[in-house]
């Protein structure tokens, strides 16, 4: 069946390893930072903007292989997906929670200085 077939090829994994560490903060989302196409993605964009942090966004709606592969790569079933310093941080709810507690700002500041 469809689900037995892995979308995360070794090539895609290598590419993703590079992409998530290309910038300190990388967001895989529906749409772009200037035109988010989903409320959850928009929420995370607004949070990153308010933290005044440089970040890269990648539109997963434009690449179905990337979209499926990423779910396996991060073992996370939904989008947006936020990466900080090459490491998966969480989806929308986790990001909102960490923003409210101040943990996100701390982590991002640490990442920028490293």
């Amino acid at each position: 069946s469809f689900y037995c077939h892995s979308s995360l090829t070794p090539e895609l994994k290598t590419t993703l390893d590079k992409v998530v560490s290309s910038q300190k903060v990388v967001l895989f989302m529906k749409g772009t930072k200037d035109f988010p196409q989903c409320g959850f993605s928009n929420t995370v964009v607004q949070i990153l903007r308010s933290l005044n942090v440089p970040f890269e966004t990648i539109n997963i709606l434009e690449n179905e292989m990337l979209r499926q592969g990423l779910k396996e790569y991060s073992s996370w079933p939904t989008f947006p997906q936020l990466y900080i310093e090459g490491e998966f941080f969480g989806g929308c709810d986790i990001t909102v929670e960490a923003y409210k507690s101040g943990e996100l700002q701390e982590l991002v500041e640490k990442a920028m200085c490293s």
Binding site: S75, W76, P77, T78, F89, G90, D93, I94, E97, A98
Partner: peptide
């Protein structure tokens, strides 16, 4: 941690 908790919930609902 929160991430692991969310993973548990997502996993349960796979």
């Amino acid at each position: 941690r929160l991430l692991e908790r969310h993973r548990l919930v997502n996993g349960a609902l796979a």
